[in-house]
Each structure stands twice: as C-alpha cells, then as structure tokens.
Computed example of a mutant assay.
Amino acid sequence: MAELFGPWIENAAATGTCVRIDDMEPMVFRSLLHFIYTDTLPELKEGDDGGDKVAVAQGLLGAADRYGVERLKLICEDILCVHVDTRTAVTMLELADKHGCHRLMEACIKVLNDMLAKRQLQRVGRVVGGGGWLRGPTSN
C-alpha cells in the first residue's frame, strides 16, 4: 500500500487535490477499497459464464499484488482457480505468473495438460482407428 502513502498523498489531502489512478477499472478500485475497509469482498455479479466475477477477480488480483493486500490476493486466486477452463487457461496462466500465484498456475497447467492429453488421444484414435489396428484379425 506504499503507493497510497507518503508525502505526496499528505500534500494532496491537505490541498484537496484528487489522486488519479488511471490504470485500474473503477469497479476494481471500489472493490479494493471495500475490502480494505471491511475485510470482505463486495458481492461480485456473476454472468451466465462467470465472466463479470472473473474479470473483477483478475483486476483485483493485480491491485492486491500492487498494493500488497495479500489476503485479497489469496481470495482472488481461489476465485480464479475455480473458473479456469480451456478458454481462460492461457490468459490466467500469464496473470498467475506475473503476480506469483502458484496455485493458480498449477490449476491452469492442469487444464492445459488435460486439454493436450485429450487432443493427443483423439489424434491417436484417428490414426489407429483409421488403420483398423485395434480391431484385431478378422475371420474370413
């Protein structure tokens, strides 16, 4: 939270100057402040595919890492681990790597490994099935 403290913030408060945070979505910043003041997450809306909740959790993970709010970082990591799928695994893996979230990395790698194994089995099935090698000898 060092970015929110120091002489410059005290000067801004004394002069009534607004502090701008341009690189964070307003909803994410509101959720961060809510967590800092209440130690709880606000209710995160979840769309049909969980997209809203996931988007806010991704933003909050970055904010929590940036401002050193470790408990919030762990909570966001838990939320994201539940929502990893084949569409989100690569993006979330990059996010996990950037912010040092080892459990999220493991969840993403598991999804990717499962996806690759399934594709590999499908490929083997096409090759083997096409040649008839698994059917065994035919009796004439």
Rank of each mutant, 00 (worst) to 15 (best):
P26A: 00
L121Q: 12
W133M: 09
C101Q: 06
G132L: 01
F5D: 07
A57P: 11
C101E: 02
L116I: 11
R135P: 00
D22G: 05
A117S: 10
A14G: 12
I75G: 05
L33I: 14
A12S: 15
L72A: 08
A96I: 04
T38W: 01
L121H: 06
G68A: 06
L104V: 04
L80A: 11
K98W: 09
C108W: 04
G125L: 00
R135Q: 13
Q120I: 14
R119Y: 07
L95S: 12
F5A: 14
I36C: 10
R71F: 00
M1D: 10
T86Q: 10
R66H: 08
R30P: 02
M24R: 07
D114C: 09
L95H: 06
F5P: 01
F5N: 07
M115V: 04
H102E: 10
L60H: 02
V54F: 10
C81R: 10
M105I: 06
G132V: 10
D22I: 01
D85F: 11
M27K: 15
K118Q: 14
D52Q: 13
I75F: 03
F5Q: 09
M115A: 14
R30H: 14
V84C: 06
G136A: 04
E25C: 11
G136W: 01
W133L: 08
Q122V: 12
D52F: 08
L116M: 09
L104T: 09
L116P: 00
L95E: 13
R119N: 15
L112H: 00
D22W: 00
A13Q: 07
W133Q: 03
I79Q: 02
E25G: 09
G136S: 09
Y67W: 09
L61W: 07
E25I: 12
L104C: 07
L95Y: 02
H83T: 08
G132Q: 05
N11S: 15
D48E: 13
G59F: 07
L104D: 07
R20D: 11
C108H: 02
C76G: 01
D97E: 08
I109L: 15
L44P: 03
T17K: 06
L80N: 08
C108D: 09
L116F: 09
P137E: 10
V124I: 15
A63E: 03
T40I: 00
M24I: 14
T15S: 14
G131S: 15
Q120P: 00
C76P: 00
L41Y: 03
R71A: 11
L32V: 04
G47L: 02
M115G: 02
I79R: 02
L93V: 05
C108S: 07
L32H: 05
D22L: 06
L60T: 08
L112K: 11
D52S: 11
A96R: 12
Q122W: 03
E46R: 06
G129V: 04
L93G: 01
L116Y: 01
R87G: 06
D114H: 01
A96C: 05
K73P: 06
V56F: 06
Q58M: 12
S139W: 15
T40R: 08
L61V: 03
V84L: 04
L4N: 08
